[in-house]
Amino acid sequence: MDLQAVVQLIGNVGFPIALSLILLQTVLVKFNQQMDGLEKRLAQLDKTMNLLVKTFHQSTSKTAIRQDKKETD
């Protein structure tokens, strides 16, 4: 928001309302930035969890194969 727009806003609606709108815009911008960061972290967490599940399944299947071999011997 440029200075001329702020001055015009104050002239049209008054200082308290203009200040409230500026603060609201600032809060919304920061909130959106935090949400974007959270979205990236959740995507990384999802990838990590999928990798852990895949590794767990591979590990349990190898353990089951080893136990089958021991039982047949």
Rank of each mutant, 00 (worst) to 15 (best):
M1F: 09
M1E: 06
L3P: 03
L3H: 15
Q4R: 02
Q4N: 12
V6G: 01
V6Q: 00
V7M: 14
V7E: 15
V7A: 12
V7S: 11
Q8D: 15
Q8L: 12
Q8W: 02
L9M: 12
L9V: 02
L9E: 02
L9S: 02
L9G: 01
I10M: 02
G11K: 04
G11L: 08
N12C: 05
N12F: 09
V13M: 07
G14T: 01
G14E: 08
F15I: 01
F15A: 01
P16C: 07
P16I: 07
P16F: 12
I17H: 05
A18Q: 00
L19F: 14
L19W: 11
S20I: 09
S20V: 09
L21P: 00
I22A: 01
L23S: 04
L23K: 12
L23F: 05
L23C: 06
Q25K: 07
T26S: 08
V27P: 00
V27K: 06
V27Y: 08
L28K: 05
L28R: 12
L28P: 00
L28E: 03
L28N: 07
V29I: 14
V29S: 03
K30E: 09
K30L: 04
K30S: 02
F31P: 04
N32R: 15
N32F: 12
N32G: 06
Q33S: 13
Q33V: 11
Q34I: 07
Q34T: 06
M35L: 09
D36C: 11
D36S: 14
D36T: 14
G37P: 03
G37N: 07
L38F: 10
L38H: 09
